[in-house]
Design a protein around this nucleic acid. Structure first.
Lengths: 240, 240
DNA sequence: CAGAAGACCTGATCGAGGTCATACCGCGAA
DNA sequence: TTCGCGGTATGACCTCGATCAGGTCTTCTG
């Protein structure tokens, strides 16, 4: 694959996007030329729910949380986006307003591409379209798993599931098999992901700690016993 | 559009599939030639959760419910598919096992196409791929709305939302503005869609009846005051 | 027609988890 | 060094909706 490497080092972020993996260097270059770079500080908003669809984003550095809110201020994190992941695609693909708010969880660098540019690129790269269909199928599947979890599983299960999703996405496996979630998350963030409250999250997490399933250290969470957590969730046939 | 009409009357079902709307007659014919027809009686299963992905389905007649189950037998209807709608696409598009079970809610006729046939057709019709991306974006959006509803809204809201989704999908508007949900659904079905129990559904529905929002007649539900129901749900910016 | 099975309905009870109040700790700013 | 603030922690209480335990009404079948 080294032969595909672009001259421009900034294009390299695209390598981490599974969706773009198979594109040739010249295609990546062209795609990159259509993009602009955006830097946001922690807490800033990329877009708000109901905004008109403008751009598709790729996370280059940092983390972005995608959330929905109620009038009374409660929020729920629908998804998290990490380097190499895209977000804002629902709005770009179907042309309706963004279905949720995107907020920088840390200082972030983003690549963005407009709807029209992306679609014209897509027309020239039909294989990319198939790739996107696969990706969207996978996201739909995960969303449906979330629906099932919310509808039928108890909080501990949902929190266990949240931890496992985090470990899969940003987990660093240490020598002794434990998984380090390399990200400073508050209990509130985890609560918002698992659709519960801080208090409950704290209680469940300290319970998990007592059972030796997890550990916390300086705000970071360490998963000690992934297998046991997985037993709790057992998402139908999928491995999660 | 009449010029596109195929000689084969059976192809006509494809007209009702938004995704296929813009295909030319010869393309529709070719697509139809790749399909086989399946008839199932009420209650039969099209596929089960965890089955290997075989086919993509289009509903020709009848209704299909897509559900997820727990070990203890409770089920949750993730989606309903009506004539002109496709289902089973997550598995076909990403190649993983079906994420849920599909069961005929009435006697049904289905058109089915294998994964390989569909993908080869897709390669020859790149515009269809864009269409599918749009559709998947919309589904993802709806799934996320469901997630929000489950995470943050009370049962009445979820039931109201369920009624509105049904009215949008299978509702027949009568002269006096009331909407007839032209489908025999049990309270259990509605409960499974709103992720609650029969008892609660019954209580909420009789409450809605008292408030003059809905009416029931021979198992069918009539929506008397759509506006008031919509006020309850107010799904962010979307019209639902 | 009797009887059974399934859908619909209602009241009583219970429990998971949300809410509220309070307290502690670490840290940066004044 | 003290103040304030944000995150963490824990106990007391309460509410929503699930669960259980009865009904009735309708439809289907022998």
């Amino acid at each position: 694959m080294a032969d595909k490497k672009s001259d421009d080092p900034k294009v390299n972020i695209f390598w981490k996007v599974p969706m773009f993996e198979f594109l040739e260097a010249e295609e990546l270059d062209r795609l990159y030329s259509l993009c602009s770079t955006e830097k946001l500080a922690k807490g800033e908003y990329v877009f708000l729910e109901c905004d008109a669809p403008r751009k598709l984003y790729v996370v280059e550095r940092g983390e972005v949380k995608l959330l929905k809110q109620t009038e009374d201020g409660r929020e729920m994190i629908v998804e998290m986006a990490y380097p190499g992941e895209i977000f804002g695609e629902e709005a770009i693909f179907d042309g309706e307003p963004y279905p949720m708010t995107a907020q920088a969880l840390s200082d972030v660098e983003l690549l963005s591409i407009t709807r029209t540019d992306f679609f014209s690129f897509l027309r020239d790269n039909p294989d990319l379209a198939l790739e996107i269909i696969t990706e969207l199928g996978a996201r739909l599947r995960e969303a449906q798993n979330t629906i099932r979890a919310l509808a039928m599983e108890r909080v501990e299960y949902r929190i266990a599931r949240t931890l496992l999703i985090l470990s899969r996405k940003v987990g660093v496996v240490e020598v002794d098999g434990v998984i380090n979630i390399d990200l400073v998350l508050t209990r509130q963030d985890i609560a918002d992901m698992a659709a519960t409250t801080v208090e409950t999250t704290i209680r469940v997490l300290s319970n998990f700690k007592k059972l030796g399933l997890v550990e916390t250290e300086k705000g970071k969470i360490i998963i000690r016993n992934k297998l046991e957590l997985e037993n709790m969730v057992s998402e139908g046939c999928t491995t999660l």
